[in-house]
Design a protein around this nucleic acid. Structure first.
Lengths: 371, 371
DNA sequence: AATTATTTGTGCGTATGTATC
DNA sequence: AGATACATACGCACAAATAAT
């Protein structure tokens, strides 16, 4: 009897208690009213009270101790603490990623987390899939290297969902331009491009070509630094001296274009390359055309990868503290997870680039002096 | 009353019913006895029956439909299909691992799985931790590269637990000698060592030193092949010509010993090295001592890593189909997961080694002919 | 050191509501 | 309409753990 509209008393009680907890009436650690007390005050049976409490316990809001009482859970439990963290990168085995992953792995396993890895192959469709997939698992946090970071973010809604679930995330290597208010760790790629170009200018180069990646943050930034250095030295910027490539034509376009420019007699005494990989390809291409590196043309790389040190021609490049980047990302994410939400959410860290001079560039001032 | 030893009737009933389901008395889709029927037959109250059933429903073994009845869940639920797979390796960024992980990643993500990575740093204590940790998460399968695989397995009980939970696992790179009945994928390292040594013998070498890793499967196997080739050619095996090192003294011992042997005038015209990394270190050490490679001493590597191709001295080595190994491991694990358990559980695949000849070895027959 | 009150955990019996067949 | 089965709810009794007396 006495049971019409607001049926399912246990459900209503459960919801009421949950709201009381969430609104702070019962604070973490507080003792909840005893079962008998609730039953008496609400004029319902203890059995019904127990059912409601049992559900709340399953959901993690309260804990019952035999003989002591029922207590509101210490740290808001709706955060399930899976101690899993997801890492999404473009590639897993290429280039600098192994070391970055190594750094992430080290910091986070030291803190008792397990890592889940996913790769996008620099495809935004895959990035969407990865994010959706991760939302079905439960992870405490996310480190993500955006795919084609210079294009518009394709799925802001997924990041909103992450925010709703209060799953912190940290960008590395690049950021979507609309999301720069989120925590991210990048190298100052602009300054890196600037340092390389400035070094070439200071060592007597005047016709400096550039090869940059069009569809990521780093490419655009390195190009920006390249332009800054030229402007600063009063050398006019020539768009025809810049080759833009994308993920899709990575393997063919830079070599093809440099081949064409050489054949057409485009004046060049140096090439600033997007990274070490491209630099080596350019060197092979130029040497195949009978051009000597660095005697005829100087070439710079970026990242100081293993490739830069091992060949006959050792690349002048920018040091990329790969493992350090991973460690910093792990550390920043830990702070996001442990720290109070809605506070210092705009943390960003920038890694300073460092110029490494090797023998892929020639100091052309001496030649002038010798004349 | 009537309540002594087998206390907690609901618990006992829950366990009994679970066993009945697992042992096939109730098959997926079957209708379970009604609450009243169970209560009557077991002479317990319906309330107690309900409690037991409610727990089983939470655990996913049964589903209750209002007004219809309670049914055994379709696909045996105790296999929770988390679609997570764990990968445990010794290292993550070193050497050939990135490519192996790449292969695993590709095959398994294509099949809708997410990967969880853990590294041991080749420490068996860490391997134990990783396995324990993985048992707390739920994974559908496990790919593991054993740490110090030539030593006795330190935690057979953990693998037994995996068996109990019916979590399939696949070994890569090596196997604990007690567990060769488990599925694993390894290269025929013995044959690889044999091929390298045989090649050196055929090209006129007679004083062939060897450097091998003592604490893993691969090291022992490669050494075995080295000995086989020597025996076959009638060259006596000289233990003093073999340097054994372990994970701990990896960085110092091989270089130190080869230095000592050289200084002592130990006769050598070739060195078979455990892998490319060691080979390069030995080359540096020997060249620092004024010995020319390959003119004075030939050196072989193993794995055909990026290191083997990039230097001035390009290593004669054994091709390691790194990505392929990862793909095969992923494939084998998928078969274990999808296949009927207790069937073809002894699947093992061996990768054939392939000799790659480069310029770190000299053909000394020509010298003899010229005389 | 033993007792007592309080509180949660287990179990029984009953009644009513509601969905399915 | 009626039988069956699960869902919700009430009341009671006792066990076991805890804390205070």
């Amino acid at each position: 009897m006495a049971n019409k509209a607001g049926s399912m008393k246990y459900f209503k009680l459960k919801e009421d208690l949950k709201n009381d907890i969430l609104s702070g009436i019962y604070k973490p650690g507080d003792k909840m009213p005893s079962e008998n007390q609730l039953a008496r005050e609400l004029s319902i049976s203890r059995h019904t009270v127990r059912k409601a409490l049992s559900i709340l316990e399953d959901e993690g809001y309260i804990v019952a101790y035999h003989g002591k009482g029922t207590f509101c859970t210490e740290r808001a439990i709706h955060k399930k603490q899976s101690r899993n963290i997801a890492v999404i990168t473009t590639y897993i085995s290429d280039y600098i990623f192994p070391q970055v992953l190594n750094g992430i792995n080290q910091v986070l396993t030291e803190n008792g987390y397990s890592l889940m890895f996913k790769t996008t192959g620099n495809s935004r469709v895959n990035e969407t899939k990865c994010l959706e997939d991760i939302l079905t698992k439960d992870v405490d946090g996310l480190i993500i290297e955006p795919s084609k970071s210079e294009l518009f973010c394709k799925h802001p809604n997924l990041y909103q969902t992450l925010d709703q679930y209060e799953i912190p995330y940290v960008f590395i290597q690049g950021v979507y331009s609309e999301m720069t208010d989120k925590p991210y760790i990048v190298m100052d790629d602009c300054k890196g491009g600037y340092l390389l170009t400035k070094h070439l200018i200071e060592t007597g180069h005047r016709f400096i070509a550039g090869i940059f990646k069009a569809d990521d943050y780093q490419g655009k930034e390195r190009h920006r630094g390249y332009v800054m250095a030229l402007n600063e030295a009063g050398i006019p910027y020539n768009p025809d001296a810049v080759i833009w490539f994308r993920t899709e034509d990575r393997a063919s376009k830079p070599r093809g274009e440099i081949h064409r420019m050489t054949k057409e007699g485009f004046p060049m005494d140096a090439v600033v390359c997007y990274n070490d990989q491209i630099a080596l390809e350019i060197i092979y291409e130029l040497e195949a055309l009978g051009i000597s590196i660095p005697d005829d043309i100087s070439v710079t790389g970026y990242d100081n990868s293993a490739l830069a040190r091992l060949g006959v021609i050792k690349l002048t490049t920018i040091a990329h503290p790969q493992k350090k980047l991973g460690e910093m990302a792990g550390q920043l994410l830990l702070e996001q997870i442990q720290g109070i939400p809605n506070e210092k959410s705009k943390v960003t860290r920038v890694i300073e680039p460092e110029l490494i001079v090797r023998n892929s560039c020639k100091d052309r001032r001496r030649m002038e002096e010798k004349r």
